[in-house]
Amino acid sequence: MKVVAIGGGTGLSNLLRGLKELVPDYIEDLSAIVTVADNGGSSGRLREEMGIPAPGDVRNCIVALAEDEDILTKVFQYRFQEGEGLKGHSFGNLFLTVLTKITGNFLDAIETTSDILKIKGRIIPSTDENVDIVAKFSDGKIIKGETQITEYGKKLIAKIEKIWLEPEDVKAPAEAIEKILNADLIILGPGSLYTSIIPNLLVKEISTALVKSKAVKIYISNVMTQYGETDDYTVSDHIKAIEKTVGKHFIDYVIVNTKLPPNEVLERYIKEHAEPVVIDAANISKMGIKIYSDDLLDEGSYARHNPEKLNKMFIKIFNDIKSSTKVING
Rank of each mutant, 00 (worst) to 15 (best):
K2P: 04
V3F: 05
V3K: 00
V4W: 01
I6D: 01
T10D: 09
L22P: 06
P24M: 03
D25L: 11
Y26V: 00
V34Q: 05
G40S: 10
L46R: 00
G56Y: 06
G56P: 07
D57M: 07
R59H: 11
D68M: 09
D70E: 13
L72N: 11
L72K: 09
E82I: 11
G83T: 12
G92T: 02
K101D: 12
K120W: 00
R122I: 01
I124H: 00
D132E: 15
D132I: 06
F137V: 00
S138W: 06
K144F: 06
E146W: 03
I149W: 05
Y152T: 00
I157V: 10
I160R: 00
I160C: 02
E161S: 12
W164F: 14
P167L: 09
K171W: 03
L185E: 09
L201F: 13
V203M: 06
A215K: 01
Y219F: 15
Y227H: 14
E229Y: 12
Y233N: 11
V235G: 01
A241I: 06
V246L: 08
K248P: 01
H249L: 10
F250H: 07
N257K: 09
P262C: 01
Y269Q: 07
H273P: 04
A282W: 08
N283A: 14
N283R: 12
I284N: 02
E299A: 14
G300V: 10
S301P: 08
N306C: 12
P307C: 12
P307D: 11
I315T: 15
K326E: 15
